[in-house]
Computed example of a mutant assay.
Amino acid sequence: MLDVSHELSLLTMQSLPRELYVRQETMPAGHFFPPHRHDWHQLLYAVSGVLVVDLIGERYFIPPEQAIWLPRGCQHRVYTEYGAELKSLYLDAGYQGLTSETAVVLQVTPLFRELILTAAGFEVEYPIQGYENNLVQLLLRTLERLERNDRYLPWPVSEDLISLCNRLYEQSDSSETSEQLAAGLAVSLRTLDRRFRRETGMSLKQWRLQLRLMQAIELLNTGQSITAIALELGYSSPSPFIYMFREQFGVSPAQYRKQR
């Protein structure tokens, strides 16, 4: 069995102790892992809380009904605003069940969730024959069949637009208009929109709506009321927030929370 110091020195490990290695930890509110990469594949999953995963030019919000696949060598930064119970699944670089060379968001089924929770309780060097290995193989086969989700938030690459997006992310209740944001950058609205579309593939207005949707999911995984969430996101009352959420997800915020 590996000793504790080996188990915790993940970034310096040359290889995984088994085909699948599960690391679990509690991330307190405001905690983050700085940008890094691995020599193996990783599946990031939070049993509770929401993970914010930054890649180059992309930001993903990962609630407990989803996980994100990060192929070998993919640089990423992980953050949680309100805290999360993290399960990190590290898979040997030779695993070919998911052939994507880019990050992929996957819908977590109840079966897959239970497989993760069970595997998380195994010893680091679990037996390579018998029950533990059989369950791990089932987990890997199930992973290959998970439905993919392409909802994420593209991030610009220009320093001034990155700064703008970071500020909008941190000030979720901002009521600044697109015209005011353009004036703050000393450019016309037309120029701002053209640059924003070129770097993110969507207009600034579409991007801000997507940001609110992602932050709504993040806040709905806390204990805050629907009214408090609506106000924090800059809505004058719950009604327009509920309408926006239902239009995008097909259910109300309360129904989403109940399903969770």
Rank of each mutant, 00 (worst) to 15 (best):
R167M: 09
L86D: 00
E144V: 07
W155H: 02
A120K: 01
G97P: 00
L139N: 00
S163E: 12
L115Q: 06
R145T: 06
Q129R: 13
D150G: 03
Q96I: 01
G97C: 00
N166D: 14
Q107F: 05
F112Y: 13
L115Y: 01
L115N: 00
R145V: 00
C165E: 04
L86M: 12
N134A: 12
N133H: 15
L98Q: 05
L106E: 12
P156E: 13
L106Q: 11
E159S: 14
L86A: 08
E144D: 03
T142A: 13
S163W: 09
T102W: 02
L168A: 06
V108K: 12
G130K: 00
L115H: 04
L146S: 11
S174P: 02
Y152W: 10
A103V: 01
E101A: 10
P154L: 06
E144Y: 10
E125I: 08
R148C: 05
G97S: 03
L153F: 07
L111N: 07
T109N: 06
L86Y: 06
L98I: 15
T99R: 15
R151V: 11
L153C: 02
F112H: 12
V157I: 08
R148S: 12
C165D: 02
S100G: 03
P154S: 08
E125T: 10
P154E: 13
I162V: 14
E101S: 13
I162K: 15
T102E: 11
E170T: 09
S163I: 05
F122P: 04
Q129C: 01
Y95A: 04
I116C: 13
E144G: 06
S88I: 05
L146A: 08
D160F: 11
W155A: 07
T177Q: 05
W155K: 01
P127A: 12
P154G: 10
E170V: 02
L98C: 04
Q137R: 13
E176A: 14
